[in-house]
């Protein structure tokens, strides 16, 4: 199945750049979610849940989401989900802004995010 990976995680980009269409977002977790929302408005569908994992949106700076390559009519289910997830992420960020992590911890966050999207891609490939 063809898919687009929207991510701000370099490890995800490095792993999937050759196989998939990777849209790298040079920005925050929220920027990734907003980019996903924009693509859904263009007719793409969500393939993975945007709130992957229990690491909260104000803890991890990284997010990767899988959307369909094909475009069609606006998918309302996808739009409702991403809109509600953006609200949830904003709620957490309003409680406490993400802090500037040390490089070692950033690398761990990247690894967790990579693993979460790996499991989505593995499911898709089955």
């Amino acid at each position: 199945m063809k898919a687009v990976v929207i991510t701000n995680n370099l490890k995800v980009k490095q792993k999937y750049d050759k196989e998939y269409d990777v849209e790298f977002v040079d920005g925050s977790l929220l920027d990734v979610l907003i980019t996903v929302r924009d693509r859904i408005h263009e007719g793409h569908k969500l393939l993975t849940h945007p709130l992957t994992g229990s690491v909260k949106p104000n803890e991890t700076p990284y997010k990767s989401v899988l959307i369909s390559c094909d475009k069609g009519d606006l998918d309302l289910d996808s739009l409702l989900m991403i809109s509600s997830n953006i609200e949830t992420a904003q709620k957490f960020i309003n409680i406490k802004k993400p802090i500037e992590w040390k490089e070692k911890i950033l690398a761990d966050f990247m690894e967790i995010d990579l693993d979460l999207i790996n499991s989505g891609i593995e499911s898709m490939q089955q």
């Binding site: 969500l46 993975t48 994992g53 899988l66 499991s119 989505g120 499911s123 898709m124």
Partner: peptide
């Protein structure tokens, strides 16, 4: 509780 929506 998988991340892939079709699994859900």
């Amino acid at each position: 509780e998988n991340v892939y929506l079709a699994d859900k």
